[in-house]
Design a protein around this nucleic acid. Structure first.
Lengths: 193, 193
DNA sequence: TTTCAATACCGAATTTCATTCGTTATAGGA
DNA sequence: TCCTATAACGAATGAAATTCGGTATTGAAA
């Protein structure tokens, strides 16, 4: 047929964008900078991605999924429900928001600017909540797992995740301390903390 | 001395901006539109506000405080701890995120774009959390109030508020239902839901 | 009341970006 | 080997925030 899109170029663009977003934030990293760092022309970026917004989504998706897969594996090695649930909450409220210099905030930035016609698909959020719910269910004692709606807790955890992500980026003094995590764990475990 | 800034002009700018932000969102409402709606020149807006970002902060502050004052008054009229706590959570997770066509999302948009040199002051967040903590303490049975750290719950509530605000704006299908609120209430009330 | 200086106000730049356009270069398939 | 679809690119284009230079107004001093 003709010339064909190269995964190598696409990957270079994503890598360059990930670095620049982490360093400067979504709004301050320009498409020109991304293109230059990827060794191509700004206009060529648009051959691979419909918009700057699409780039951030393309980075975020596998990044988040990898985090959750790691969490999954990590939890399997923990002995008590307390330890497992603590790790889940800690990961979502402290580790991921802080990872890559607060990369998660870029997604919030991008999402908050999205309009209905950008037709952002909440599939990733749903998938994530399902995954978290599964992890919670697997982590709790069977009796407790049976009596709660894990998806609801997952939703609450993810909503607060957004808040921690945004606030990490602005002010690192607003962090999520152990006591906060313990508090949430108590609620999930039904210990009425 | 000389000509002086007029509160009337400032107020017209704020009113116009509030309307346009509610209608179009922060990113799509332009300073030119705001100026025109306020009956002044775009450049004159910068006599009253350092930036577009500062406008959104100036609107948000009194708006949020008014919501919380109303909540305060409303709670005083409720009889049971359950009803009071429910109302607090409902207000934060459902009512405020949806108010004025999702205005709260504009703040998240603005905050997520803020850089350290915009020196966003987390005073409002702190103030809000203090206020919420106070409302919770006053709403709970004394014994329960004494055993929890209300500020921690307030922080969790506010973090999740950010998430609900962002998600209301993108996809109204992702809402906060009664069951979710009940779940959080049970945690706060120590009912181990 | 007049004058004066500070500054609100305005329209016209300026700047910065994302995005699009027109053209050229390249490579897969016939 | 040629032909065609399209990746790649440099130069526009367009939109928006913000700045600039000049003018008009106004509070206060004389």
């Amino acid at each position: 047929m003709a010339q064909v899109k190269k995964t190598e170029v696409r990957d270079r663009i994503l890598a360059a964008a990930a670095t620049l977003f982490a360093e400067l934030g979504y709004a301050r990293a320009t498409v020109s900078q991304i293109a230059k760092a990827a060794g191509t022309a700004p206009s060529n970026v648009y051959v691979y991605f419909k918009s700057k917004l699409e780039i951030v989504f393309a980075i975020y998706d596998p990044w988040l999924k990898e985090h959750l897969d790691l969490l999954d594996a990590e939890i399997a090695g923990l002995d008590t429900p307390e330890a497992r649930v603590f790790r889940i909450v800690e990961k979502l409220w402290r580790d991921i928001p802080a990872d890559r210099n607060g990369f998660a905030n870029n997604l919030i930035q991008a999402i908050s600017q999205a309009t209905p016609e950008d037709c952002y698909d909440p599939a990733l959020l749903r998938w994530t909540e399902q995954k978290i719910a599964g992890l919670l269910t697997a982590s709790l004692p069977p009796r407790r797992a049976a009596e709660i709606d894990a998806l609801r807790f997952a939703h609450i955890l993810m909503m607060a995740f957004d808040g921690f992500a945004v606030n990490y980026a602005i002010n690192r003094a607003i962090h999520c301390d152990d006591a906060m995590i313990e508090q949430m764990c108590a609620s999930i475990l039904g210990r009425a903390g």
